[in-house]
Design a protein around this nucleic acid. Sequence first.
DNA 1: CGCGGTCATCGAAACGCTTCGACGACTGCC
DNA 2: GGCAGTCGTCGAAGCGTTTCGATGACCGCG
Lengths: 337, 337
Amino acid sequence: MTTIHEVAEAAGVSISTVSYALSGKRPVSEKTRRRIEDAVQTLGYEPDAGARMLAGRRTQIFGLTEPLRADTHAPTHMAFVLATAVAARRRGYDILLLTDEQASEGMNRVAASNLVDAILVLDVAPDDERAEIARSLRSPTVFIGIPDDAHGLTCVDLDFEGAGHLAVDRLADAGHTSVTLLGQTAVSYRKSNFPRRLLLGVQDRAAQRGVDLDWATTGDTTTDASAVRAAAELALSRGVRAFIVHAVGDVHEALLETLAAHGLSVGEDVSVISAAASFDTSSLAVPIDTIPLIPQKSCELAVDLAVRHLEEPGAPAQIHLIPPEYHSAGSVAPARE
Amino acid sequence: MTTIHEVAEAAGVSISTVSYALSGKRPVSEKTRRRIEDAVQTLGYEPDAGARMLAGRRTQIFGLTEPLRADTHAPTHMAFVLATAVAARRRGYDILLLTDEQASEGMNRVAASNLVDAILVLDVAPDDERAEIARSLRSPTVFIGIPDDAHGLTCVDLDFEGAGHLAVDRLADAGHTSVTLLGQTAVSYRKSNFPRRLLLGVQDRAAQRGVDLDWATTGDTTTDASAVRAAAELALSRGVRAFIVHAVGDVHEALLETLAAHGLSVGEDVSVISAAASFDTSSLAVPIDTIPLIPQKSCELAVDLAVRHLEEPGAPAQIHLIPPEYHSAGSVAPARE
DNA sequence: CGCGGTCATCGAAACGCTTCGACGACTGCC
DNA sequence: GGCAGTCGTCGAAGCGTTTCGATGACCGCG
């Protein structure tokens, strides 16, 4: 294993000069630095992680807790994990997985042993036990998602309420007076927080704008295409011609099929908005207006916040809501009499 | 932060005694150990990871490389990641995620910096570039899956060929003379290795047993229910009454629906075996005989192998095939004339 | 009683890096 | 020509463990 000593010797300088040349924390002359860089190259030097942690009191590792409950939607979850890993890597951090049954043990352990510089929390539940732990930890902790009691926590998430407002506004602006929200599974309204926040935003704004709102879940614990079809049929029979969908791809497809079966053309006879979808809605049979939930955005912001808290330890904990964006694809039609 | 010094002081012993008491590498008297354990408890001592790495030349971390290609089946992949993390944790190791676009960079980096004790490789491709890197690394590396050139590598996987043999044998034993294999997506036969190995096993044994074999992929890049239905229809029209399914849950459901539509009862009129499914087939509408692919088994074995290579550095690299198990559920019927 | 042998404990030397204070060599100014 | 101020570099002190060799206490034996 090649050490900083060997690099120093090869370059004819002291080890501290090598360290400074590589970290850039003190100026090093052009000539010297080049010699050092050459030595690093030819020797294939890579600093020892353990030594660096010990001396530098930085590990360049973030812990990522993900409970991975049975009802977690795997593709979405994976997108978040991946996005986090990529964002962290870009800032020079690696990701240590904390998938313990009891997230508490893992968080306490890695924090107490200084294995990680900060902890990122995924798949946040309303009554998440990790909230309490995060408050007791000295390591910066960033939640991607918002627990009920977010007091003293740093959180990042899409502004689901705002997304709900935006969706209703667009439909109301188009003249629709009754709207149906096809939501998530029933269980996710209990185990997660964001579906409720979107629902709240939709209800809220619907009331303000005088829009009739129906709301249906799309299955009990798992998405159920027949439940979606039934809900859609019911809505259509009541004359509803505007839908907000907050669900996975399958639900969109089931809805579109049902609409097609009725001879209704999306963007002409009927309006559809996909709210907070984390998959690519452009691969659907029909282009759909979308207010996307972009994992990359949340995760990048989360990583940025973690880094910031590391750099300025005084930084206040607060909730960061990412403003919703509306991507038009022509699926909202003016209401007909 | 509490250090080993404070523990030593509190217990009235030297730090080396504390270290030995905690590691058990040298005998410590009952009395002393209890005092030390008490001090550890009350002070909430947790050894510093960096210091431990530096002094002990062990990090207690495994790297996990997962390329996460677009065509990766997320739920299956997640099951493997989770199983690996759990198995590693049980042996006292944490998992560091290596999701880099170029896995090479990450593997080299973490190995060179001694960040990990060993590397586990997931989602192995036939021409996987990580094979070459693994050979050049000093860190033990274990592949979960088998690349084309496995020379000099330690690999773990289900015996897919054996699973193919087993499936055909069961159907042939039941008197079936023609069988259809509903395989994976077309792309996975190029990008992965295991679908080919299962196919090979099936073809092989079918030839030996004089069984007519048809083979259909279940979509191009992604599973396509209509392709499954078409393949099933075709097979049925040719009089085939025996199916081997190597695919995700949706494919099973599409097949079962098609069979039901023809008024065929599984386990009476028609035989179905699910080969190498990594999900729970008992949640299907009809109980299906299954030769399961159990992520826990592969991942536990992989972790065990990594640990073994760490303990006895001389251990030879070899391929470990997990023998297939046949779980009967009554879905194989005797062939009719 | 003294001697070799356990057993439990201790002191000190790594491990490879970061960082602080100091120092010499210049430069430019009075 | 001497002095303050830069700039680049160096030596050494940690960082918190593990681990090796040594030491002292105690035991049983001749």
